[in-house]
Nucleic acid binder design. Structure first.
Length: 597
RNA sequence: GGGACUGUAGCUCAGUUGGUUAGAGCGCGCGCCUGUCACGCGCGAGGUCGCGGGUUCGAGUCCCGUCAGUCCCGCCA
């Protein structure tokens, strides 16, 4: 039907007769001449009709309205000098409409304007209910096209440069004990038994390594039945990769090339390789979290040594019971952050309280290195200690020192949050900065106080560091995360490929031999038939695209996302099913809807 | 499960200490207009103030409940 996309027309097409298909973005009827902007996914172009130059179409053009679907044939002309529009790519030309065919009309008032004026905001629930219209809009169309370009770049790079194969893995699989809540589906053929939707293709991709497909990838849909957030959907997309015969170093190097290519092709940014690296221990020490935003400094300083014998019991007591005292120094903080904000009721206090802190102690460094703080701290601090403190934190007159004291996890969480809030507020974060780094040497396990057992920090298939093999409980893992501006965009590990070690890890997380065999027997058995050393990584594709698109929510880079209540407003899923369907599955719902008055 | 915010015309919003007939811009309809590009000008239609209950002489406004959306905590190996 058509010969060109609207948004691609340039002065090169002047003189050609072309045919366009698309939607009427806007119509400007000046009485004697009508201008239409015709839009398709490539952009839009101006179409002109008037009674002299295009007598056959003028009256039809008068009847066109926004979002009518039309086919227009005409000749491309250079715009008159005074009518050039340098704000749109097609602004140097226009098309005289010699034929117009209305392919379809709009019969109802549109729920919102599709043609975008400035940054007009439309309620998200409306956008989601009429997602097909929302996706016509420039911003969403651009986001989905960006997503496509990212995926295309990944495919080209992995397939053509690195010889990866894409292999699909099952969506109907079995429930796994660790990790997030599964979505489950009843099996009709095997009554009483249940499938689960995969949280990731982890086990299948490892089995593909056993099969000899030494470089596998998949743009994989994954499912987790947990509560939603701006960056969490119940179904999401991972770039999933697994490689055999590659060390951690080789896997990281390959992935750096992939990432560099994405940034080059999508953003035109040349990343300096190799990317910076930081161990988990360093990240926790300096930033209090394992995904530090290193676009700005404000590093934490451990001052436990100075306060371990302090008269100030809040500090010395915390250290005595195995905790720490750390400081977040804020240069110039005396001016920018008032006491009110640190004390109960203040926003920084609230931030700290949400992280579990009882309060935030502080010291203000004054001229001549005098300090201002509560009496109890000041009295307990000798002149020597004070000097040590100033040296260690590098504090200068005018600086504010915020304290966290207690259990290390809580202190880190508190100061991490304060650091991010303050960094953002003081404008220390340059939004144009692109900061990527690897965090490595994660511990294998983390103590789960509620369940009183060790938990895999990454997942239980992660290989321990060879130097730490003697005591798995404190071992480092051969695991690595890639961080982009303070967001984890990917994480992976070298995997265990030996049955004994895998069994030891299962045992360390409290999985009995029976359970391990029941859930993962097929994997353990596979390890006995010649499993190559292997490892891999998975990227949160939605998050990556969101960050590249400059959006704040992954919903804006997913064509048909769910609301925070995990509903699809377009189809109104989830919904009731027919009683017959349930009966066939031998499933009975015990759910009682709340009585409605 | 918990905390916070939002809901007024098709859309985006305003609406004062509770007070007469709830407004604006855009969109929509009609008319005028031959170089606009967020075209302009004029006229017009369009409202169960999310829903239910309460307080009051009187509720968009106050109170209680409820529904929907968003952000966060918990949760998400």
């Amino acid at each position: 039907m058509r010969t060109h996309y609207c948004g691609t027309l340039r002065t090169e097409q002047i003189g050609e007769t072309i045919t366009l298909c698309g939607w009427v973005d806007r119509r400007r009827d000046l009485g004697g001449v009508i201008f239409l902007h015709l839009r398709d996914r490539s952009g839009s172009v101006q179409v002109v009709s008037d009674p002299v130059r295009t007598p056959d179409t003028y009256h039809l053009a008068e009847t066109l309205r926004s979002e009518y679907v039309v086919k227009i044939t005409g000749r491309v002309y250079s715009r008159p000098e005074e009518s050039l529009n340098d704000r749109i790519p097609t602004g140097a030309i226009e098309v005289y409409a010699e034929q117009i065919e209305v392919l379809n009309r709009v019969h109802k008032q549109l729920p919102f304007q599709v043609s975008q004026t400035e940054n007009e905001f439309v309620r998200e629930d409306l956008r989601l209910k009429y997602r097909y219209l929302d996706l016509r809009r420039e911003r969403m169309s651009a986001n989905l096209q960006l997503r496509h370009q990212v995926i295309k770049t990944i495919r080209r790079c992995l397939e053509d440069r690195f010889n990866f194969m894409e292999i699909e893995t099952p969506i109907l699989t079995r429930s796994t004990p660790e990790g997030a809540r599964d979505f489950i589906l009843p099996s009709r053929v095997n009554l009483g038994e249940w499938f689960a939707l995969p949280q990731s293709p982890q086990l299948f991709k490892q089995l593909l390594m056993v099969s000899g497909f030494d470089r596998y990838y998949q743009i994989a849909r994954c499912f987790r039945d947990e509560d939603l957030r701006a960056d969490r959907q119940p179904e999401f997309t991972q770039l999933d990769m697994e490689m055999s015969f590659m060390s951690q170093e080789e896997i990281i190097n390959l992935n750096e090339e992939l990432i560099a290519r994405i940034f080059k092709e999508i953003k035109g940014i040349e990343l300096a390789l190799p990317l910076p690296r930081m161990t988990y221990a360093e990240a926790m020490d300096d930033y209090g979290c394992d995904k530090p935003d290193t676009r700005f400094d404000l590093k934490l300083v451990n001052v436990s040594e100075i306060f371990k014998d302090s008269q100030f019991k809040v500090f010395s007591g915390a250290i005595a019971s195995g905790g720490v005292v750390k400081i977040l120094p804020i240069p110039g903080g005396n001016q920018t952050i008032s006491n009110v904000r640190i004390k109960p009721g203040g926003n920084l206090f609230k931030e700290a309280a949400e992280a579990g802190a009882k309060g935030v102690a502080y010291i203000r460094v004054l001229a001549d290195n005098e300090i201002e703080t509560i009496g109890a701290i000041k009295d307990s601090l000798s002149e020597i200690s004070k000097q040590q403190l100033l040296t260690l934190t590098g504090a200068k007159p005018g600086d504010l020192l915020l304290f966290g004291a207690g259990d290390a996890a809580m202190v880190n969480k508190t100061l991490d949050r304060l650091r991010l809030v303050i960094g953002r507020e003081l404008g220390l974060i340059d939004d144009n900065k692109v900061n990527l780094l690897w965090v490595t040497d994660f511990p294998m396990f983390e103590w789960n106080a509620d369940e009183k057992r060790l938990e895999a920090l990454h997942h239980p298939f992660t290989a321990p560091h060879p130097d730490d093999i003697n005591d798995l409980t404190t071992a480092r893992a051969q695991a690595y995360d890639i961080i982009f501006n303070g967001t984890e965009i990917g994480g992976g590990s070298v995997r265990i490929h030996q049955r004994e070690i895998q069994e030891q890890v299962f045992s360390a997380i409290g999985l009995s031999i029976e359970e391990a065999n029941d859930k993962f027997g097929f994997l353990l058995e596979a390890f006995e038939y010649g499993t190559p050393p292997h490892g891999g990584i998975a990227y949160g594709l939605d998050r990556l695209v969101m960050l590249l698109a400059g959006e704040d929510s992954i919903r804006d880079v997913i064509a048909f996302p769910k609301t925070q209540q995990a509903r699809c407003l377009l189809t109104n899923a989830p919904a009731n099913v027919d009683a017959k369907q349930l009966k066939e599955l031998e499933v009975i719902s015990t759910y009682k809807p709340k009585a409605v008055d």
